[in-house]
Write a protein that binds this DNA or RNA. Sequence first.
DNA 1: GAGTGGTCTAGACCACGCG
DNA 2: GCGTGGTCTAGACCACTCT
Lengths: 255, 255
Amino acid sequence: MKQISRSSPVPLYYQIMESIRARIMNGELKPHDSIPPEQQLAEFFSVSRMTVRQAITHLVHEGLVHREHGRGTFVADPKISRRLAKLNSFFEDMKERGMEPGSRLLACSTVPAKPEIARLLRLEEGDTIIRLMRLRYADGVPMALQTTYLSFEMCKEILEDPEFESLYRVLEEKCGVIPYIAQQTIESRLPDQREAALLGVDDGMPMLLIQRVSFTEDGVPFEVAHTLYRGDRFNLSLTLYRSPVAGPGSLSAGP
Amino acid sequence: MKQISRSSPVPLYYQIMESIRARIMNGELKPHDSIPPEQQLAEFFSVSRMTVRQAITHLVHEGLVHREHGRGTFVADPKISRRLAKLNSFFEDMKERGMEPGSRLLACSTVPAKPEIARLLRLEEGDTIIRLMRLRYADGVPMALQTTYLSFEMCKEILEDPEFESLYRVLEEKCGVIPYIAQQTIESRLPDQREAALLGVDDGMPMLLIQRVSFTEDGVPFEVAHTLYRGDRFNLSLTLYRSPVAGPGSLSAGP
DNA sequence: GAGTGGTCTAGACCACGCG
DNA sequence: GCGTGGTCTAGACCACTCT
């Protein structure tokens, strides 16, 4: 197993976390296997047990492993626990699906915000915002038609070069805007004639319309995106839990 | 603020967590307010700072607060961070949307498992399973057409009275099967003539098809459900995180 | 520089699962 | 009884933000 470096700027718990993750990802540790006990990992890495616990706690919250009091810590079953939906840009999403994303910029300008968009971005009606319209490709074939509204104040650096690859990467690097959470609604509808023509589908083809509002960690909305996906080329996969994530110690006993 | 009890069987960090949560829930601490610094909380409760950190870490993972390095810890915006993911049956989902669920049983029998269903339920092809076909109503109007395949071994008590209200409640009470997690895929398609007739829609109406495989906590699959929702009456709403912490996917009402 | 959260130590005792 | 994870201490130093 890879050793860790105390001179690295990367925290020890993070290096340990990645070390364990690597052993799971490369198949050395398989689902339902136990990982070494915390005490043993602490000795191996020459750190305190609390540091090992910090590493494992992260992996637990990711769903990669789970702890069992008195028994050990076990690699989770990938079939049911590792496919949490992530907040991805179109570019990132297609990459994760193993397809090559592409983009054709149809329009890019500043416009006054319509009431609905202004409300979602917590601006006043008529405030200046950025509007991008793009035809999105996957492996060279049209996949979706996307209209993105961005807060002008937060994202104006986007306008310097709107032919970027990944919106979220540019937002992080040029604008200092780090996406954190988003609310999405998903519905099914038919395309209008213009949409059908751009996407190269029949106007009777059912489409998936995904509308997203994205926020930074501070709860500030910066993006409203409407994406119309071809129903014949796209689906969504997500994981649902019966009860929201509960802490390690169970939640019954009262004082 | 409520003091904590060292003689209680409830861990100190848990009592502190609940104390902070209570101050947020009762409005004493509002969204974007900072909570007291960790050092101060440690002194107030007479515990070490690490114990306070453990309490706050739980609240962070719940999305109730968020930390900002060098600045403080802040109450999260409820509009974007407190939607919890839930695995609901159709009955429960409609109740949460404020609609009155209904059901018409079209078929209920044991059948041999087709290859795809057998694979998902981890059975052999041809093994006996239960198949339910139901037309589902919301406020008395057809909303979805649902085919549910259940493991015979785990769910046979269902057959005693298949005209139940909530599948998940019956599974818990009569079969001892407690749903824990599910994988869903969502796509858009047109109905065939029979489906359109049953749901009372035109056959050009785009529909949402949701396919679900549900598991118990042990990772054992017990249900495969195909639900075809009317696109004009149904949509999905879900929360996405940039770094997966919580499970996504709560359902919300549509037009 | 003061105040905050981020990381880390080197122990301790307890609760749980199992043989 | 033994090994495991669960909780907790009383400090330490660092990195970041704000003034």
